[in-house]
Simulated assay, not measured.
Amino acid sequence: MAKPSDIRHDPFMDVPTSITLTERHLIPSISPYTICLNEVPVKNSPTTTIVRIIDIGDGAVHYGADFDEVAATPIEGQFFPDYNTSAYDSTWNTGTIQFSAADAGKGVEVTYLAKGTLTGVSCNMYPSWWRDRGDGSDGDFYPTGNVTISGRKNYRSVYIPAGVTVSVSGFIDIRCQGMFINAGTINASGGGGLAGQQVKIRNLYGANIGLNGNPGEPAIGGGAGGAAGSSSDSGYYGVNSSGTKIGGSRLSLDAAGVLAGCYSEEILGGGGGSSPGVYSISEGGSTETLSGAVGGNGGGMIRIVAKSHKNIGSYISTGLNGTSVTVDSAIQTGGGGGGGGVILVVCERNLSSGTASVGGGAGGSYGGSGGAGWYRVIELGVN
């Protein structure tokens, strides 16, 4: 067993110190039915560690019975803290708590005297940020109604009840120290690459002019945006610098989805759909400008790094649809659909992956659909 590090120490008295911490965890549904605290608890007799059942099915915390501490294999309603450590201080233990199979899947709240962390908790087999569950500074996140969040969040624990939708503005990067339960919906649709913008019209007397729209913003890890289209091949579609119809380009899944998506902390998302150009008709000395269709934005990013993960609701990060417009009573134009976004979960214990939607948006008339994004749950399988 690794020795303690980051010790809470009083340099004047030259003795270890401790603080009281409270954490919320889910007991795994598979053997060995253990959870691991974020710090190492003090061994006391009688014990100062309190473990109790919690139920937050309605968004509020309801407490059940306290567990009894035992020094052997536990039965229902008991917990066994592992004190088998070679640490220099016998008051340290490993921070691992074992429960009975009869208590599998239950939520628990643990209050204990914390003395610091252990060495040897990182691994060069995966990036260090996979174990970065934040500092809990944003507290517990238990929304009871629909809410919009964005950016980096540092939660102690998360419970999103059924019927509640958490909308994501752009992207969300949730770091959760304890349990993460989603029974509702987290939706980041349209938060990725922007659709291509229509260019300004050039007014030329007596000529029909079709100007190309622009490609959507590229995808990093998510699905590619669809190309815009037109029933007239003389223009009205998004192009790249070579004049090829294209939506928001996509990096390969290997390069972006696996390497960038899993091994770096880049903000990912789906590509925006391409927008057609505008159509101008000049007759008799006057010019009429007719707008083409609009592409759809790509899906955004949902990233979750948690101790334990349970998704019995849904994650959504789809690309938005392109629109359709008929110009000059004849020419149909359609924006490309946005590419699907990125959903990435990194956890030590995964109790349920649930469902996720990362499809690309549909293209408008003659427009291409956006490509699919991706959803990954990475279970470290460690305490």
Score class of each variant (00 low, 15 high):
residue 108 V to E: 05
residue 119 T to C: 00
residue 98 Q to P: 04
residue 126 Y to A: 09
residue 88 Y to E: 07
residue 102 A to S: 10
residue 89 D to V: 00
residue 97 I to S: 07
residue 122 S to Y: 07
residue 85 T to D: 01
residue 114 A to G: 13
residue 100 S to K: 09
residue 120 G to Q: 04
residue 111 T to L: 05
residue 88 Y to W: 10
residue 119 T to D: 00
residue 89 D to A: 02
residue 102 A to R: 09
residue 117 T to R: 07
residue 112 Y to R: 07
residue 86 S to F: 06
residue 107 G to P: 06
residue 108 V to R: 08
residue 89 D to K: 03
residue 106 K to W: 01
residue 103 D to M: 03
residue 124 N to D: 15
residue 87 A to R: 11
residue 83 Y to W: 09
residue 123 C to I: 03
residue 116 G to Q: 06
residue 124 N to K: 11
residue 96 T to Q: 13
residue 88 Y to P: 01
residue 93 N to P: 06
residue 117 T to S: 07
residue 96 T to M: 13
residue 111 T to K: 13
residue 105 G to K: 11
residue 113 L to Q: 15
residue 104 A to Y: 02
residue 119 T to H: 00
residue 88 Y to M: 02
residue 125 M to G: 14
residue 121 V to N: 06
residue 86 S to L: 10
residue 117 T to W: 03
residue 112 Y to A: 12
residue 119 T to K: 03
residue 87 A to F: 07
residue 109 E to D: 08
residue 104 A to M: 04
residue 115 K to H: 03
residue 126 Y to W: 14
residue 120 G to V: 00
residue 103 D to H: 02
residue 111 T to C: 09
residue 97 I to P: 06
residue 119 T to P: 02
residue 122 S to T: 10
residue 124 N to S: 14
residue 122 S to G: 04
residue 110 V to M: 12
residue 98 Q to C: 12
residue 105 G to T: 11
residue 86 S to R: 08
residue 109 E to H: 09
residue 124 N to T: 12
residue 85 T to E: 02
residue 86 S to W: 04
residue 122 S to K: 06
residue 114 A to F: 12
residue 106 K to G: 00
residue 118 L to A: 01
residue 114 A to S: 15
residue 123 C to S: 14
residue 84 N to R: 08
residue 124 N to Y: 07
residue 126 Y to G: 13
residue 125 M to R: 15
residue 107 G to Y: 07
residue 100 S to G: 13
residue 95 G to R: 02
residue 122 S to N: 11
residue 126 Y to N: 10
residue 96 T to N: 11
residue 118 L to T: 00
residue 98 Q to F: 09
residue 103 D to I: 07
residue 107 G to I: 08
residue 108 V to C: 05
residue 121 V to F: 05
residue 113 L to E: 15
residue 121 V to E: 12
residue 93 N to W: 06
residue 110 V to F: 13
residue 85 T to Q: 03
residue 87 A to Y: 05
residue 101 A to M: 10
residue 123 C to E: 01
residue 127 P to K: 06
residue 115 K to M: 14
residue 100 S to I: 11
residue 107 G to F: 04
residue 127 P to R: 04
residue 124 N to C: 10
residue 123 C to N: 13
residue 124 N to H: 05
residue 126 Y to Q: 12
residue 106 K to I: 00
residue 86 S to G: 14
residue 117 T to E: 12
residue 117 T to C: 01
residue 119 T to V: 00
residue 96 T to W: 05
residue 113 L to F: 10
residue 102 A to D: 09
residue 101 A to V: 09
residue 87 A to D: 15
residue 94 T to A: 08
residue 117 T to V: 07
residue 125 M to V: 14
residue 88 Y to V: 04
residue 119 T to N: 03
residue 117 T to Y: 01
residue 118 L to R: 02
residue 124 N to P: 10
residue 114 A to K: 12
residue 92 W to H: 02
residue 83 Y to C: 02
residue 84 N to T: 06
residue 108 V to D: 05
residue 119 T to G: 01
residue 87 A to G: 15
residue 124 N to I: 12
residue 126 Y to R: 15
residue 127 P to A: 04
residue 94 T to G: 09
residue 107 G to R: 12
residue 102 A to C: 02
residue 86 S to Y: 03
residue 96 T to Y: 08
residue 84 N to V: 12
